[in-house]
Amino acid sequence: MKITELFDRGEFVVSAEVGPPKGIHIDGLIEEAKKYLGGITAVNVTDNQSSVMRLGSLAVCRQLLDAGLTPIYQLTCRDRNRIALQSDLLSAAMFGIENILCLTGDHTSLGDHPGAKPVFDLDSVSLLHTVCQLESGVDLGGNPLVGEPPKFAKGAVVSPCSDSIDAQLAKMERKVLAGCDYFQTQAVFEPEKFIAFMERARQFGKPVQLGIIIPKSAGMCRYMNNNVAGVHVPDDMLDELAADKERAKAGITGVEIAARVIRECRPYCQGIHIMALGWESKVPALLKQAGI
């Protein structure tokens, strides 16, 4: 199922993210996804997230599909040129994967193989363009595909709390022009910034899923503030997490904070996207508290 069908019906779309392991055993991942994420719309599978080498996104998407879930196949442009990306898109379509998320990807120097060649033959915008091209039955080189062309719900990301917000919105516009159907955002902890962003992003007329991270501790949030672009956890939330370490550790405080952000932003977005970072088990409680 394409998640764009749900947006079209006006449904509030909930997705969450899983990260493949650095290894070949995913029974645990699939069980957890079935148990905690079975009730939501779709599950993103990250593509060598943070430039750290892991099991492939495409393979894990296929396993999720077999387990009865709806995967969103994330593709970055860091590791593959236009030939490999198009080939993997065809493979995904053959497996029955209908949702994709197109990203530029972090630079190789940030990951666990800093000496690797950064590819970036395409970027998020030209990858979206390439997918549209494939959907029209022709590849990027202008050569016809054989048989029915693939069809995807094409997503991309945007960073609403970035300090480069003008450049981010300009890029968002280019993604829309290149054929993007829906957006997922970087994690939001400042609803007022998100709402201000949506005032400006509404003109593009594309559904936007609010990005959510369940904060685990004040330390984790401080780390994100210093190291993760576009993520800022305000001081009062840090204090809230630091006030009762046991409650924070049990996830109670984090779920409260995340649920509050969702409730405040809900009237302004068309869905949410949860980056659980290992706390998949907290997703059902979060959705309940957020009233979804």
């Binding site: 530029t104 915008v125 480069s164």
Partner: peptide
């Protein structure tokens, strides 16, 4: 641009600085 991007900014800029 550290990634030689030709279609706009990536999501990695922080305080106007490059992620790399």
């Amino acid at each position: 641009c550290s990634k030689s991007l030709v279609n706009g900014q990536c999501g990695g800029a922080q305080n106007g600085r490059c992620e790399v």
